[in-house]
Design a protein around this nucleic acid. Sequence first.
DNA 1: ACTTTTGTACTGACTGGTCAGTTCTAAAGA
DNA 2: TCTTTAGAACTGACCAGTCAGTACAAAAGT
Lengths: 189, 189
Amino acid sequence: MSRAETRQKVFAAAIDLIAEQGYSATTVDAIAERAGVAKGTVFYNFGSKEALFSALLEHRIGYLAQALRDSAVGATALDALDAVVLGQLRFFEEYGALARVLLAEMWRTAWQEAIVQLREQALGVYADVLRRAVAEGQIREDLDIDTAATAVFGMVLTVAIERQALYPDRPVSEVHATLADLLHGRISR
Amino acid sequence: MSRAETRQKVFAAAIDLIAEQGYSATTVDAIAERAGVAKGTVFYNFGSKEALFSALLEHRIGYLAQALRDSAVGATALDALDAVVLGQLRFFEEYGALARVLLAEMWRTAWQEAIVQLREQALGVYADVLRRAVAEGQIREDLDIDTAATAVFGMVLTVAIERQALYPDRPVSEVHATLADLLHGRISR
DNA sequence: ACTTTTGTACTGACTGGTCAGTTCTAAAGA
DNA sequence: TCTTTAGAACTGACCAGTCAGTACAAAAGT
C-alpha cells in the first residue's frame, strides 16, 4: 500500500470521528482502528495528532475552495452567486462531516493556518462574486463585502448541516430555492 | 456565598474556557480555578462535568430565547425580523463565548435536550416572525419557514462570531445594516 | 546467481502523564 | 443544627507519543 493511500484512509477515518465527537474527544487509537491501520502508522505518517488534523483541514479546505470556484459561473453575477450557494450545498451533501468539523473548529485559534486558508480561498469565492456584482451594477456599492460573504457562507453551512441532521431526504434543490429566495429579497413581495 | 452565586461563577468560568478550548479539552480543575472555587464545590453543585455543561447550556439558551422574544417587536413583521436580528447580534456581543460554544456543540448528539430547547425556543422566535409576515402578506406563502429560520439564525451567529474574533471594534449597527440589506433583497438595486 | 545492504512503510506493546470523579477533614455561614 | 464550601490527597481509566523490531523491495556488491 502506498503512503498516499494510507494517508487518505486515515483522513477519512479521522474526519468522520472528529465530526461525531469533536477533536479532543477523538483518540488516535480510534482513528487508527477505523482506518484499519496500526496506531504507530498514524504517527509515522503525520508526526502528531495535531499535525494530522492540520493536514486534514488544509486538504479538505482546498477541495471545498476548488468546488466553489468551479461553481462560480453564471450569465450575471447574481446567477453566479446562486450557483456558488448550490455548489456549497452539493459539496457538503457529499462531505457532510467536514461541514460539522468546520463549524465546530472554524473559530478555534489552534488552527489559524487552515482558517486563513478557508477565509482566503473559500470565502474569497463569495467575495469575488459579490465584487463582480458591484462591477456589473447589480449590487449597492457600499455593501460590506467581507461581512456579506461570511454571512452567506455561514448561512449555507448551517442549513447544510441541519438538512443532513434532520431532513436527509429533502432534495438539495428545495433548500437551494429557499436560500435563493432569501438572498434575492423575494421573500417580501 | 449563596449556592446560586457559586453556580453563576462556575457557569461564567466554564463557558469562557469551553469557548476557547472546546468541551473535552476543558478540565474541571481549570474551571474551578478560574471560578475561584474548590474542585469539590463544582462536583457538590453539579454532580458531574456533563451535568454542569447541560445545566449551563439550558440556562444560557433560555436567556438567549428571552432576549430574542423581547426583541421581536415592530410595526410590520419585517421590522420585527430586523429587530430580532439586531437582538441576536446584541446578545452575542455580550455573551460571545456562548456563540462559539453553540456553533461548536449545536449538532453534537450528546446535548440533545439543549438542542431541542434551542430549536423550539430561539429558532422558534424567527419562525414566529416569519409566520406573522406570511399572515400579513409580506412573504410568499410557500416559503419553507423552518429552513429560512435556521438560515437567518446561522447567518447571524456566524457573523457575530466573525465580528467578535476579527473586528471587535466595529459597531453592531453596521453589521446589522449589512444583514438587513441582505435579507430585504436591497443588495440588487 | 547470490548475498548483503539500504530505505521505506508499518506494527503494537509500553510509558509517562493527565484527568474525572471520590473521599476525607475542617471550617464557615445561616 | 444543617448546609455549603475549602482543600488536599488519592484512584483508576484513558491516551498521546515512543521505540524496538518486522516485512519487503530495490540496489549494490561479489
